[in-house]
């Protein structure tokens, strides 16, 4: 791993980046005092890239993801997603942007338990006010290998199947950026592989951008680049690393 200065980026992509973080800081204030979760992160996520964000617990990975997706407001700094600056957007404008441009997959509790698999996947379209096309929903479910589970409810599915439904739901709106927070954290290795392959496919086939927070070197190895975060700062990156190399870099960081 090559240690780089925090003033990354080194690679400027040909096209405009899908997601730009510019000088992001985030300070949480509580009774115990102020905590700096992010201390100035600048990074450009190229269009069609699969980036893993790694770091020890408390390094600010999740905060980074939340700020990047507009779920949380950074204390200072600017987030630009698909050419749109998030700061200053109204709650409704932000919601519409999320609906159209972003897809989310989290470790757990991704699905509405009361809806069938079909209805969960169709929900983003319904929220947009569109009538979901049966064929379209079925196609996405086929794509994630759940064409036969259309009428099930989440409680009747395994953890891996639930994650794939979540991916199908994210795919249906053809978002430009996928945000994934420990998507394989609760899965066995077989299910993990399926989920990660689906994310990989999204970038390779549809040119979508994936930002994935993980602590698992095997998962991170699916990404073409791993960005390491430490104490709220980018500590370095590793391109096309094997799980072994990534694990070594991580233990260096935690030392």
């Amino acid at each position: 791993m090559t240690a780089t200065a925090p003033s990354y980026p080194s690679v400027v992509p040909e096209s405009a980046p899908a997601l730009v973080l510019d000088g992001i800081t985030k300070t949480y204030r509580s009774k115990a005092g102020a905590v700096d979760a992010l201390r100035g992160v600048t990074y450009h996520f190229p269009r069609g890239s699969f980036t893993a964000v790694m770091g020890p617990s408390g390094s600010g990975k999740s905060t980074l993801l939340q700020c990047a997706a507009g779920l949380d407001q950074p204390t200072t700094g600017v987030v630009v997603l698909g050419g749109v600056t998030l700061r200053g957007l109204s709650e409704v404008a932000l919601t519409k942007l999320r609906r159209e441009e972003m897809g989310f997959v989290f470790q757990a509790y991704n699905l509405l338990p009361s809806l069938t698999v079909y209805d969960n996947v169709a929900l983003p379209l319904r929220l947009t006010g569109k009538r979901p096309q049966r064929a379209e929903v079925h196609a996405v479910l086929e794509q994630v290998g759940l064409g036969d589970k259309v009428k099930r409810r989440p409680a009747e599915l395994s953890g891996g199947q639930q994650q794939r439904v979540a991916i199908a739901r994210a795919l249906i709106t053809r978002p430009s950026v996928f945000f994934a927070d420990e998507p394989t954290g609760a899965l066995d290795s077989n299910s993990s592989r399926q989920v990660l392959s689906l994310l990989r496919e999204a970038t390779d086939r549809a040119g979508q951008t994936v930002v994935m927070v993980t602590h698992d070197p095997v998962a991170a190895a699916y990404a073409e680049r791993v960005v390491f975060l430490s104490d709220g700062l980018i500590a370095g990156h590793l391109d096309r690393g094997t799980p072994g190399q990534i694990a070594a870099a991580m233990s260096d960081l935690e030392r």
């Binding site: 779920l71 409704v92 919601t95 609906r99 991704n110 338990p113 929220l127």
Partner: peptide, 16 residues
């Protein structure tokens, strides 16, 4: 709260 948050996450506006 969690379920409502999920709805908001996947694109439901506060009004919805």
């Amino acid at each position: 709260r969690q379920e409502l948050g999920l709805l908001r996450l996947i694109g439901a506006t506060p009004r919805q």
